[in-house]
Simulated assay, not measured.
Amino acid sequence: MTRVLIADDEPMIRAGVRAVLSTDPDIEIVAEAGDGHEAVELVRLHRPDVAVLDVRMPRTNGIDAAAEISRTVSGTGIIMLTTFGEDDYILRALGCGAAGFLIKSGEPEELIAGVRAVADGAAYLSPKVAARVVAHLASGGAGARAGRRAAAREKVAGLTPRERQVLSFLGSGLSNGQIARRLHVVEGTVKAHVSSVLSRLGVDNRAAAAVMAHEAGVVPAHAAEDG
């Protein structure tokens, strides 16, 4: 059973998220919060597997709440709910320990897939989020876009073939277990590859590595999900 906390200052949004997640019998909503401060307190109390946080909330916003949860509560994965136009917030959240990013207007199936992935230790960027983040990073014009892509490709070129393969799977939102099944190796081997990939790329977490994978163009157009 995956235990989830939902935090959003709009009751209707919380109800919608709860309704979607409740369609999965393996997901349990353990708490709801109306602002970031309450979210942090409830995460400390309930220790959920995943906290789904709105970016903009009163008292403490979602970014600061994510940073505090990452700093003080181990074992809780964080998914940020964003709207179009909040690209800067997404980039800030990458440095605050968030592992998943979803657009509020996205498909309900993406929310369930994101919660499952983050609960399983993976990073999850909805296709719309990944596209907007990469576009935002390149918004300085053609030269900036080419420069970022070239820098990402240069870093990725320094990886071993197996590490590049693992990075591609990270960018597709696969967990260590799913990657292990794809590569026919034990999960511990995948963990070692992931650690090496993060170190070589100079990033702090899987979500940031996933963004770089998209920038470098090493993520397949679509990736079939494992069970």
Rank of each mutant, 00 (worst) to 15 (best):
G147W: 07
S196R: 15
A31C: 06
R18L: 00
V43E: 01
S196D: 06
L159H: 05
D24A: 15
E10S: 12
R44T: 02
F169D: 07
H136M: 08
L183H: 10
L137I: 15
E41D: 13
A210V: 01
M1Y: 07
G114P: 11
D24R: 04
G202Q: 06
L137R: 10
P220Q: 10
A192Q: 12
D120P: 02
S172D: 07
G62N: 11
L42A: 08
D120Y: 03
D204N: 12
A31H: 11
A7I: 06
V43G: 01
A138K: 13
R182W: 11
S175R: 09
V186W: 02
V211R: 00
K155R: 14
T72Y: 09
G147D: 12
A39Y: 04
G95L: 06
P161G: 06
S196L: 03
E187C: 09
G121T: 08
F101S: 01
S126Y: 13
E163I: 03
M1E: 10
I90A: 15
G147C: 08
I79H: 02
V134T: 15
A66P: 04
A39L: 05
S172P: 02
G143W: 02
E10D: 05
Q178F: 02
G36P: 05
R14Q: 08
A19Y: 02
V166R: 01
A19F: 02
S172Q: 05
H46E: 07
K155M: 09
A65T: 05
D9W: 08
A207M: 09
E32D: 08
T189H: 12
T82C: 13
A150K: 07
A135M: 05
V50W: 00
A130E: 11
I112S: 08
A122L: 10
A67H: 13
E215G: 02
N205I: 04
Q178S: 15
A138M: 14
V218R: 00
V17P: 00
F84A: 14
V30W: 13
D54L: 08
H136P: 12
A207E: 03
V194R: 01
I13W: 05
A19H: 05
T160I: 11
V118N: 04
H184M: 07
V190Q: 01
I90P: 00
A117T: 13
A113E: 13
G97R: 06
V52M: 09
T72S: 14
L201R: 00
A117G: 07
R3D: 13
D54I: 03
L81E: 08
R206K: 14
R148L: 15
V30N: 14
V185R: 11
A119P: 13
M12P: 09
L198N: 04
G16P: 08
L167W: 00
R59K: 14
